[in-house]
Design a binder for these strands. Structure first.
Length: 231
DNA sequence: TGCCAGGCCGGGT
DNA sequence: ACCCGGCATGGC
């Protein structure tokens, strides 16, 4: 399994490109394909992206189940219910007051700008739509990029706390790097393929939940052992 | 029992 | 421009 063989688009060269390819290959060998995002429709992915902010997916999935059973997992239905009703339905996901507000903000944006049609939103250019998502209260860079990649299929790399911790723990970046610079590191050194970005981010999460957990001193048996900035 | 989870916002310095 | 508290549930 190699980036070169499996994914399309121009293939960047250089030390970072080689390191990232090595990391991807090792993670894929260790964990196998992750089949993300765990959601059935693009709209479900959007809602899930908001619900999973600083939250365990097991809790999010309960909230999604509640939404499905209530017939609320579509923009039209959500647009017409009071915030406090939505809050109770998504309660298991935690932060239910702020998250219900954020979901309704996103839904209002969809309804008012695109008549609730996600496909219409996804006909915009990547960076155009990204800046509009970022202008919504409660949608930050990771949530926006998750929506763009996993619901919209745009070629954009999602960075999260796991990504930063893994790179930092392996001496590949400092502990003060910004979201945007980590994102650029991946996007400038990999073929611009949504399927690759999808799998890569999911694999980093798999590593972050396992070997590279917070509070773990060192990754003795880490699949990435031996990868350094200066080999 | 305490710590953690696929962030983001707003107020204070 | 940073830094930090708040937001909250459920699993280990």
């Amino acid at each position: 399994m190699s980036v070169t063989g499996k994914y399309g688009g121009p293939l960047p060269k250089g030390p970072w490109a080689e390191r990232l390819h090595e990391i991807f290959d090792r993670l894929l060998a260790a964990f196998g394909p992750q089949h993300w995002w765990p959601g059935e429709t693009p709209f479900e992915v959007c809602v899930g992206a908001i619900l999973t902010q600083n939250t365990n997916w097991a809790n999010v999935s309960r909230a999604i189940k509640n939404l499905k059973e209530a017939g609320l997992l579509n923009p039209e239905a959500l647009f017409s219910i009071p915030r406090h009703v939505l809050a109770e339905i998504i309660r298991p996901a935690g932060y239910y007051n702020v998250k219900s507000e954020r979901i309704l903000t996103f839904v209002a944006f969809l309804m008012q700008e695109f008549s609730g049609d996600l496909d219409a939103a996804f006909s915009l250019g990547l960076w155009d739509l990204r800046s509009r998502l970022l202008s919504l209260k409660g949608i930050g860079p990771e949530t926006a990029d998750s929506i763009l990649l996993y619901a919209g299929g745009y070629p954009i790399f999602v960075v999260d706390a796991y990504t930063a911790r893994i790179l930092e723990r392996h001496g590949l970046v400092g502990d003060d790097v910004s979201y945007d610079s980590i994102q650029s590191l991946f996007m400038d050194n990999l073929p611009s393929d949504p399927a690759l970005f999808n799998e890569f981010h999911a694999l980093l999460v798999a590593l972050g939940k396992g070997h590279c957990r917070k509070g773990r001193p060192r990754c003795e048996t880490c699949p990435l052992a031996g990868i350094h900035l200066n080999p």
